[in-house]
Design a protein around this nucleic acid. Sequence first.
DNA 1: TTTGCCCGTTAAATATTGTTAAGCAAAAAT
DNA 2: ATTTTTGCTTAACAATATTTAACGGGCAAA
Lengths: 231, 231
Amino acid sequence: MSKAKLLVVEDDPNLGDILKEYLEMKGYEPTLCRDGEEGWNKFKKDKFDLCLLDIMMPKKDGFTLAKEIKKVQEDLPILFLTAKNQKDDIIEGLKIGADDYLTKPFSMEELLLRVNAILRRTQKSGEISPLKVYTFGDFILHYDEQILEGPQGKNKLTSKENELIRLLASEMNKLVNRSHALKQIWGDDSYFNARSMDVYLSKIRKLLRDDPKVQIITVHGEGFKMIVGEA
Amino acid sequence: MSKAKLLVVEDDPNLGDILKEYLEMKGYEPTLCRDGEEGWNKFKKDKFDLCLLDIMMPKKDGFTLAKEIKKVQEDLPILFLTAKNQKDDIIEGLKIGADDYLTKPFSMEELLLRVNAILRRTQKSGEISPLKVYTFGDFILHYDEQILEGPQGKNKLTSKENELIRLLASEMNKLVNRSHALKQIWGDDSYFNARSMDVYLSKIRKLLRDDPKVQIITVHGEGFKMIVGEA
DNA sequence: TTTGCCCGTTAAATATTGTTAAGCAAAAAT
DNA sequence: ATTTTTGCTTAACAATATTTAACGGGCAAA
């Protein structure tokens, strides 16, 4: 597994293609299905991190599919795509155990926010997640490719930069203890390693400069925190 | 422990129903009202753990309702639901004493996070609330970002300033015991830490100078109190 | 009122962090 | 085999944050 895998089931071919392309562009690995039955087959064959399900679909509707999926893998997050003002659909979806919903038409930006929020939550705090793509502000960290994608394009990272950004991003808006970071990335907390980390922080702050929403603040004597402000 | 009771006041029938369903599904006991007046009546009849109030509503808006509620039960936490970019609404809400806010459209994810955070801290008394934003007089403390927003604009704070202002603001108009503050922020109550705190108090008083309504008064031998006068 | 302690303020000293650049060794390229 | 490049560390210095010192005023108990 290289990127977060998304099962996208959407019968409208236009929207489906757009979703697929957008999500790919943003560093996910979407699998597009045209109806519920196809979705079910793909689900059985592969392992996904999140499902995006349209509700009204031929052959097998989103509800039915969601119920079947939940029966097999209860913890797999589901995000429904519903027509506007179909509140009954939304409620039904939530009852089945959907994590969230989006009413059509939605912007790609909204979609991304929701997807990120869900994927972020499903990873346990304190641990580094198995997720390979991290988004924060206008940036996307492709962890296993060691690439930071930002407003200015893609940027190759060194492994230390990569590790440190991942640590900060995985604990977004939370404090990352200095000593913990050092042990995690450098192996132990010593004076020179600490100075080395400071050098990397400086480099990373420079990389993150072109989105003012993203900042790394220091908590004196404690550690660091990546904060992401309002859109 | 029994379910937490939530007073949900939202005039959009779709959103209202969705909120109710979702919160029920997540183990809460929501009571849905369609306008501020109905909300007020329910509030008088029952006992709640948290209020979720829309701001723009017919008959009685969220602000008015919140003020009335706070007059009767000051410690009841309030979470406002506001339209996006209504920064003035947000500030007004925080001044009334809201605990947090959500800008529409919000994800169910976010909602749940906020609700949980508020309920979690109200159950543990004596602890400092993990609130993000504190208001007092013309100031807004963005705790997570270590920024104090005042009449003169935004001001970056050091960690110690940040902690101390938060402590004072969270106990607004109440006495903060010296020794308690020291243990809370410096770890222990020793002579030098006490002197250090005095230095910070001095710095903070300087920062708060541009609003005469806000003052930190000393209770000799006891501690400090941030008092906020009327406009 | 006098004495001693507590507190306010400013300044100096120390500790921690930010930044830039030099050094160095391993990997990659030639 | 040698240069060149790359990633990381160490060093050096600048900027901040925090603590300690110094001095003076105010308050409360005797």
